[in-house]
């Protein structure tokens, strides 16, 4: 599968995750969100950049439990719980947020 943006094709897996995380751009994230009829606000971008930073450091996409723990360290408890993340990413926080962030699909989680 591929995602098209400005005439360029970006390979994705069957669920729409970018094959190459290096190809990511904010425009690609916006395009993915648009296709889901979702608008990205500052809180979304904050989560997306935390995920990209996590991937750059550890080379994996974190499962939800680990993501929450990690965000707790970065942002404090009010932004590190599953209701908050579900509100931002209703299709399943780790999965949807990882996809917008250009990361691979996190293993065994939502």
């Amino acid at each position: 599968m591929t995602l098209e943006l400005d005439g360029k094709m970006y390979p994705t897996d069957p669920e729409g995750f970018l094959v190459d995380p290096e190809e990511w751009s904010e425009d690609l994230a916006r395009k993915m969100a648009e296709d889901d009829r979702c608008e990205l606000g500052p809180d979304h971008w904050q989560a997306i950049y935390i995920l990209r930073e996590y991937y750059a450091q550890y080379a994996i996409a974190p499962p939800i439990r680990i993501l929450i723990r990690h965000m707790g360290k970065k942002l404090g408890r009010e932004k590190a719980n599953s209701p908050y993340l579900y509100e931002l990413f209703p299709h399943g926080p780790a999965k949807q947020a990882c996809r917008y962030a250009g990361l691979p699909k996190p293993t065994g989680c939502i």
Binding site: Y58, A59, I66, H70
Partner: peptide, 14 residues
Amino acid sequence: MKDFSKTFGALPDF
């Protein structure tokens, strides 16, 4: 190839 030696760093969180 992916540098999975980086991933060991995440293990304490797991």
